[in-house]
Amino acid sequence: MAFNKYSYLLTTVCLLAGGVASQATAPEWGQCGGIGWSGPTACPSGWYCSVGNPYYSQCLQGTATTTPGGGGGTTTTTASGGSATLVPGWSFIRAVADPNFHKYLQSEVLSTASDAVLGSPSTAAQFQVTGGQLVQSVGGNKLYGVVESRADSTIMKLKLSWSTSPATSGTFNFSGDTLEWSNPAITRPQNNAWLVCPDAQGHGDVYVNLGPYAYQTPAGCADQTIHGYTGSTATA
């Protein structure tokens, strides 16, 4: 068969382009893997690619260490040091059902007043519910869970975020180990109904679900309940 220099050049360009894409670096907090993912798989210096589920891995702060597994020499990867040891009187808060099984409540920008997200166990925050406030411990300081105001009755989900000031409306409480939120001005079918909805960067933003649980779920979101957990460290 005759040599076709144009086909050769096109093939070479495609291979080089694929190599550049695979070597590109994902952004901080960006996606770095998962089934069907064709983007960058490397994270910036000081960050590591954490597997959230088979379809989504995310660049998180820290370093990953690989330790030998038992028997056949398999390995498991965990964040260096894992989560901080739980302080007595506080608890982790996590989802216990797919697609966010054992993802933990935290700040999108760690330990900072920002959106509330479910994320890696290695960066799990610690909480108390006291006086109707959801309190996150931040190095001796506190952040408070704040639910956005409802603009009108057509709004069926309200974003949870963290503030340096206590919430002025709505009440958090634990029913058993399940976190609830209520507001006398809003009627909800289920006070422990939450939604987790990915934002443009793939963070699992947490919302109060004002509609029925597991019915008419907003597109792209997942119905969740979230639960207190008092193990010594956050576990996957």
Rank of each mutant, 00 (worst) to 15 (best):
G176K: 04
T178D: 13
P189M: 02
N191P: 04
W181Y: 07
N173W: 04
S175P: 01
A185R: 10
T171S: 06
A193P: 00
D177R: 04
G170F: 02
N183V: 01
L195G: 03
P184I: 12
D177P: 09
Q190H: 10
A185E: 09
G170P: 00
V196L: 05
W181G: 00
F172V: 10
T171Q: 07
T187W: 07
F174S: 01
N191G: 03
R188D: 13
V196I: 09
P184E: 12
A185L: 11
P189C: 04
A167S: 15
A167P: 01
W181S: 00
E180N: 07
A193M: 04
W194N: 04
N191E: 07
R188T: 15
T171R: 01
L179K: 06
T187V: 15
N183C: 03
S182M: 05
Q190W: 11
N173F: 14
P184W: 14
W194F: 14
T187D: 11
S169W: 15
P189W: 06
T178V: 14
S175Y: 08
A193S: 15
S169R: 11
P166N: 06
P166T: 09
N173D: 12
G170S: 11
L195D: 00
D177W: 02
E180T: 09
T171K: 02
N173S: 13
P166L: 05
W181N: 00
L179M: 09
G176L: 10
F172M: 06
T168A: 15
F172K: 02
L179S: 07
W194D: 02
G176S: 08
G170L: 04
T168V: 14
F174W: 12
T168N: 13
S175H: 09
S169V: 13
I186V: 12
L179I: 12
R188S: 14
N173L: 08
P189D: 01
D177T: 14
